[in-house]
Computed example of a mutant assay.
Amino acid sequence: MIILDVLFYSFVVVVLIQVLYYGVLFGSFAFSKAEKPKGKNLPISVIICAKNEAENISQFLPSVINQNYPNFEIVLINDASSDETLDVFENFKAQHNNIKIVNVENNEAFWGNKKYALTLGIKAATFEHLLFTDADCKPLSTQWITKMAGYFSDQKTIVLGYGSYTPVKKSILNKLIRFETLLTAVQYFSYAKIGLPYMGVGRNLAYHKDEFFNANGFINHIKIRSGDDDLFINEVATAKNTALALDPKSFTTSIAKTSFKAWFRQKRRHVSTAKHYKFKHKFLLALFYISQVLFWLLGILLLSTLHLWPFVLGISIIRLIIQFLSLGYAAKKLKEVDLILMLPFLEIFLLILQFCIFINNLISKPNYWK
């Protein structure tokens, strides 16, 4: 009984931690009113780095070219592709005078490092305000540049956007990928909301050139092949210089991986960069994950023994209600409401997956950039 009592009180502490995360931290984002972009029509350089993306560029670049914005250029970076990416770039450039091509050849010192290619592209950009997306991304409206640029101000020199994945009917994998993307976005938007920005996603991210050059580019993590987006933002973002782009017209979408194996490899690369975050961010992120795991483990164990089960059940229901409300409102903002009905299943599956990724990354290093 003493052991069960200890487990029960531990469970109460875990639930309190979870309530603080979902109700207070994530609630600061979920229940707040989104700031509207002011729309200054600043000159914008859209930067797209591609490696062996000929097919995706052909399909998705027109949605960037056709943006309804008065003054923008598109900087296309060919990162030593072995397919027809450069040919596709040149075909588009021949038809549009606001396209600039940066052709990057293999460099022995920076072989396979996307940060080297991006650095050359940023230096080649004509304008001071940079907007980044990926070769397989599509803006959800012709107002994408307008809305993202509208969040810039004299103080706000970094804009964190949302990059979604296109829904696929009757696909559990697609829902799991989208749920992981939603939860990640809720976290980085929430931390930024309370003044602790820690990451952004390269599918939809903007910042001023000065932020890049004042930090000496990617030099502090150039040897880490991943992290051109999240590690850079982790280094330079502050409470004062970071804005959140939450207008639905500022969102982008991508085609999610269609095989679990491919997605698992992708997530291994993403997760491997987290160990390079600032300590305070690593601590808070780890505490959230551990408290999630302990909530389910301790809750199931206590309910299976029927030890103080009415209290365990009641506390669990309170936590679940707060979680549903917080993520539900956040999902409404990010246009992902269909995921909420499967919340407990998706959460448990994701926790197991994250544990497997952690173990795999301990055993071997993940692959980077294509």
Rank of each mutant, 00 (worst) to 15 (best):
E55K: 02
N56M: 02
N56E: 13
I57W: 01
S58M: 05
Q59F: 14
F60K: 15
F60P: 03
L61E: 06
P62Q: 10
P62F: 06
P62Y: 13
P62R: 14
S63T: 13
V64E: 10
I65A: 00
N66A: 10
N68W: 02
Y69S: 09
N71V: 13
F72T: 00
E73G: 00
I74P: 01
I74G: 02
I74W: 07
V75I: 07
L76A: 02
L76G: 07
N78D: 08
D79S: 03
D79P: 01
A80C: 14
S81V: 07
E84P: 00
T85Q: 02
T85K: 12
T85S: 11
L86W: 13
D87L: 08
D87A: 07
V88G: 06
V88N: 01
E90F: 00
E90D: 10
N91Y: 03
F92C: 09
K93Q: 09
K93M: 04
A94I: 11
A94P: 03
Q95Y: 13
Q95H: 13
N97C: 03
K100C: 11
N106H: 12
N106L: 14
E108P: 08
W111Q: 15
W111C: 14
G112A: 10
G112N: 09
N113A: 07
K114T: 09
K114S: 08
K114Q: 13
K115Q: 07
Y116I: 00
A117G: 00
L118M: 07
